[in-house]
Design a protein around this nucleic acid. Structure first.
Length: 271
DNA sequence: AGTGCGGCCTGTCCGC
DNA sequence: TGCGGACAGGCCGCAC
């Protein structure tokens, strides 16, 4: 499923092929995503050049002179550039036809994603305005996590997956980061020291950077914009490895549900 | 304010 | 082998 590294990989691959391109026609075959695609999206985009392709959390932000299309890939979505003549598959819900015969194709089998239109600064959009710092921004550091966690009794894993704390941390990377930082996922967020949060912040940045460098993980439905799978899967240490041996100490990893999300940890390494 | 939970979807996996 | 049902998963929006 597309997590932050997959979304960032998608952005980097698409940006040089989209920026400066004029959209000739937007074809919406299935508007029923998480929220309906707004009817005005097509008319706002058609005839305009894509001026930039940004990212905030897991939202891709395709901007024109007049506004921004927010695109979320949900759990199983993908964006690819195809030839305009290529017949769409069952779950290819939206095409942005580009002048010159190429086509940006949005596919989302489970329709957990979104494609929305927003005029004005993207940061002001209700879905983005309350997000916490990006993991790679200066505002994200151990001190931030420490201050925000004081008095909180919820599990640190739930805390990490709260978008107001840090933008774009999904289940896979919350599991991986806590494993690497040797922090038990069920530990109350408010009972972790400043030093440990410093290490955790560094670990989060490191894992995400490595995964982006490798082109994203390859879980289930994710494919890169060229159709190739990502390559980080081999390096996942915890996620989806319940009952398998810890890659650090050999103990059997434990699996459970924390904050309604499947969670894996090493009972020996993580405290 | 913090916390927990329901709900949206469908491909995949498991058991019969 | 085929079929049905449970499950996963991001994350908003609501209830407490």
């Amino acid at each position: 499923m597309p997590e932050l590294p997959e979304v960032e990989t998608t952005r980097r691959e698409l940006a040089p092929r989209l920026i400066g391109q004029r959209i000739s026609r937007v074809l919406i075959r299935e508007p029923r995503l998480r929220w309906p695609i707004p009817p005005e999206l097509a008319e706002r985009l058609e005839g305009h050049r894509i001026a930039g392709l940004g990212r905030r959390a897991k939202y891709l932000l395709a901007s024109t002179r007049d506004g921004t299309a927010l695109i979320h890939l949900g759990m199983a979505g993908s964006l690819r550039i195809v030839a305009a003549g290529e017949p769409p598959g069952r779950h290819d819900h939206v095409d942005w036809r580009l002048e010159g015969g190429q086509c940006l194709r949005y596919r989302d089998p489970r329709r957990f994603g979104a494609m929305l239109w927003w005029e004005g600064p993207p940061a002001g959009h209700p879905l983005l305005s309350r997000l916490g710092p990006e993991p790679f921004s200066d505002a994200f550091h151990g001190g931030w996590l420490y201050e925000r966690s004081r008095g909180r009794r919820a599990a640190v894993k739930s805390f990490l997956m709260d978008g107001r704390i840090v933008a774009g941390m999904g289940n896979i990377y919350a599991n991986e980061a806590l494993f690497e930082a040797a922090i038990h996922p069920q530990r109350p967020a408010g009972r972790i020291s400043r030093a440990r949060y410093g290490r955790l912040a560094a670990v989060i940045r490191g894992i995400l950077a490595r995964s982006i460098g490798a082109g994203g993980t390859s879980f289930r439905d994710y494919v890169r914009t060229d159709g190739e799978p990502g390559s980080y899967q081999a390096r996942l240490m915890a996620y989806d490895r319940a009952r398998e041996p810890c890659l650090r100490c050999g103990a059997a990893l434990r699996g459970s549900v924390v904050g309604q999300r499947s969670t894996v940890w090493c009972p020996r390494c993580q405290r």
